[in-house]
Amino acid sequence: MEGITLQHYLFLAALLFSLGVFGVLVRRNALVVFMCVELMLNASNLTFLAFARDSGMDVGHLPALFVIAVAAAEAAIGLAVIIAVFRSRGTVNVDDIRTMRL
């Protein structure tokens, strides 16, 4: 593609990843944190695919496929955990879920 080089895609992926990190570290709602994790995973997917396209070997699509599958599994479990936590604590505010302290 004329003008759109690998660098553009990588830049986009970096931007998406950073936005995802920002969301994970700043938002207080656990569900939103989860969504930002999905955002990060997508950014990594984009990186994979950009490199695959650039090198011409489509074997790079397979890790992306697996990332999608694993993200699905992780979302399932994570949301189940959030439900359990909500049942016991009545909130999904990460500031109020301080169980992991010594």
């Binding site: 080089t5 990843f17 950073s18």
Partner: peptide, 30 residues
């Protein structure tokens, strides 16, 4: 956290710069 995100962005951009795009030909079955 905000600063880390910004820093991470900068790091990733810097890391991405040296790559020279090969722009290889893709087979039709790509």
């Amino acid at each position: 956290g905000g600063l880390v995100a910004a820093g991470l962005f900068a790091a990733l951009v810097i890391a991405a710069r040296p790559f020279v795009p090969a722009a290889a030909q893709t087979p039709p079955s790509f």
